[in-house]
């Protein structure tokens, strides 16, 4: 039985999705334009992890959609 997400939690979830989105793009720039192979490889791996983080946050949001109240309480 999951509890409804609080308004504060929602703010943190969306803020964190913005952060992860920015990190995905930054890692993509290093992966494409970087000159050091080890750093390019690492940023390619990190890019995937950030995508997983983004998915986790989005899934949590979607998971809580059904049980969220439609009226202010």
């Amino acid at each position: 039985m999951i509890q409804p997400m609080t308004a504060k939690e929602l703010e943190y979830v969306v803020d964190c999705m913005s952060n992860e989105d920015l990190q995905i793009k930054q890692c993509a720039v290093v992966a494409l334009e970087g000159t050091t192979p080890s750093l390019r490889n690492l940023c390619t791996q990190m890019l995937q992890t950030h995508q997983h983080h983004y998915d986790s946050l989005l899934h949590a949001l979607q998971h809580h959609q059904q049980i969220a109240p439609t009226q202010p309480q």
Partner: peptide, 24 residues
């Protein structure tokens, strides 16, 4: 990228301490 990772670690720690739902 490193500076943002450090900032995000703190952000997640704050988010966890401010959370009410156990799953969140």
């Amino acid at each position: 990228v490193l500076a943002d990772l450090k900032r995000n670690v703190r952000e997640y720690a704050t988010a966890a301490t401010e959370s009410t739902c156990p799953d969140i």
